[in-house]
């Protein structure tokens, strides 16, 4: 059994942090589903694990880059064309008063 209880409060917080608005129906559906998925996934507890997390499967370290003359990107307009709304070159977003 999963010890993590995903109550309505938690779902509410998750949806706020993830910036994903959910309807009451969706909240209930996801809550049930998540409990089921995580219960099944709790078999990972059976594995004998070491103390170290495996973040990278390759051995590369210290990939640094020399500072040099800037190389401006040559298709800035193609980036700007995707802006949702523009004004004087700025991206327009809601105000925050």
């Amino acid at each position: 059994m999963v010890e993590t209880i995903i109550d309505d409060n938690v779902i509410e917080r998750v949806s706020e942090i993830a910036r994903l608005k959910l309807s009451e129906k969706e909240k209930e559906k996801f809550r049930e589903e998540f409990e089921r998925i995580l219960e099944e996934f709790s078999v990972v507890d059976e594995i004998k694990v070491g103390e170290k997390e495996l973040y990278y499967v390759i051995e590369n370290v210290n990939v640094l880059r020399k500072d040099s003359e800037p190389k401006p990107f040559n298709k800035i307009n193609d980036i700007k064309n995707n802006f949702n709304k523009k004004e004087d070159g700025f991206i327009v977003v809601p105000r925050n008063l």
Binding site: V93, R95, L97
Partner: peptide
């Protein structure tokens, strides 16, 4: 930079 009052963003 995000100008809160004007709602403008410059990256």
């Amino acid at each position: 930079r995000y100008e809160l009052r004007e709602g403008k963003v410059d990256l």
